[in-house]
Simulated scan of single mutants.
Amino acid sequence: MSSSPATIPVFDGHNDVLLRMRRAGQADPVQGFLDGEATGHIDLPRSRAGHLAGGLCAIFVPPPSMRPDANGDFLAPAQADALNETMAMTRLLFELEARSQGAVTVCRSAAAIRAAMNAGSFAAVFHIEGLEMVGADLDALYLLHQAGLRTLGPVWSRPNIFAYGVPFRFGSTPDIGPGLTEAGRALVRACNDLKIMIDLSHMNEQGFWDIARLSQAPLVASHSNVHSLCPHSRNLTDRQLDAIRDSGGLVGINFGVLFLRDDGARNGDTPLSKIVDHVAYVADRIGIQHVALGSDFDGTTVPKELGDAAGLPRLIEALRQRGFDDAALAAIGHGNWLDVLELTWGD
């Protein structure tokens, strides 16, 4: 994975391209991804143009309604409905691999990610965001792991049987709601046994600390930012950042403008310097080895200056202008993700 200053490969901690494909209404969304599209943030041609070498490809089942209830919570889908949608998006992921002629590889180990990147194949990791498709018996978890599931977030921003997802609130700490349920504690133990990475993005603060006490793996927030810079409930407090450092974990910086700005505005004119600010804060506080990228491409509003995956070299250059050298850029761009996945998965 050698790289020149202009071509730092990026392995990204979070995208929602599978959901976008599922909802696109196209006759053949897989071919649309492979050939290139006019909508969204990620497809194969734009990934190649931006040196996006791979990432965690999330399966997320939206709530039945995008209107929260009286408590500000989104409703969770029924387990059967969530499982059906999960199967449909999983099929899209593996169909992408099958039809790509080697251009997309579904990876189950850090070694496989490195090999795919070296071969110029998009290294996709099967990730689930919000585990509504799994019951308290965890039967579906074991089947999904056999199918290739290697990372998961127990919750999205809604309660489920495992934990309480933090609601979207600006001007709020993440300390909203209770922690893990008994089923959630069993889930953490099972993930440790199976070497599935537990993603803390969307977890409320009580759940975060419950997992920190229980899990034997590094603490990872795949697409979260700094609460001190943007007081959004989805962002991490300094104390949480310190715990991630102490566990040998990682923060993937989210490109979503809602989680970057100190005013909480959904404003696409947000400069790339705001992403750089969050990267620099984490690097300065807990060490450069604990910060990476977690774009949230196809799941949120990103700065217009970035645009989509093809714009990633502009972000790399903005980081360079802030003083990050080639070694630091390689670590932030992909090396730190590969290291923490290797440590978590034990390969």
Rank of each mutant, 00 (worst) to 15 (best):
D73C: 03
D73S: 11
F74P: 03
F74S: 08
A76N: 12
A76P: 09
P77D: 06
P77M: 05
Q79E: 14
A80E: 15
A80C: 13
A80Q: 12
A80G: 13
E85I: 13
M87V: 04
T90Y: 04
F94D: 13
E95G: 06
L96F: 09
Q101M: 01
G102H: 12
G102K: 02
V104Y: 02
C107R: 09
A111K: 10
A111S: 12
A112H: 06
A112Y: 05
R114V: 02
A116Q: 04
M117A: 06
A119N: 11
S121F: 02
A124P: 13
V125Q: 09
F126M: 06
F126G: 04
H127D: 13
I128V: 14
E129Q: 12
G135H: 11
A136Y: 00
D137I: 02
D137E: 07
L138N: 07
Y142V: 15
Y142D: 11
L143Y: 04
L144M: 14
A147L: 14
L149P: 08
G153I: 05
W156P: 11
W156R: 10
R158T: 08
R158G: 03
N160K: 06
I161Q: 10
I161C: 02
F162I: 01
A163N: 05
Y164P: 03
V166C: 09
G171P: 01
S172Y: 05
S172Q: 14
D175C: 05
G179L: 10
G179S: 11
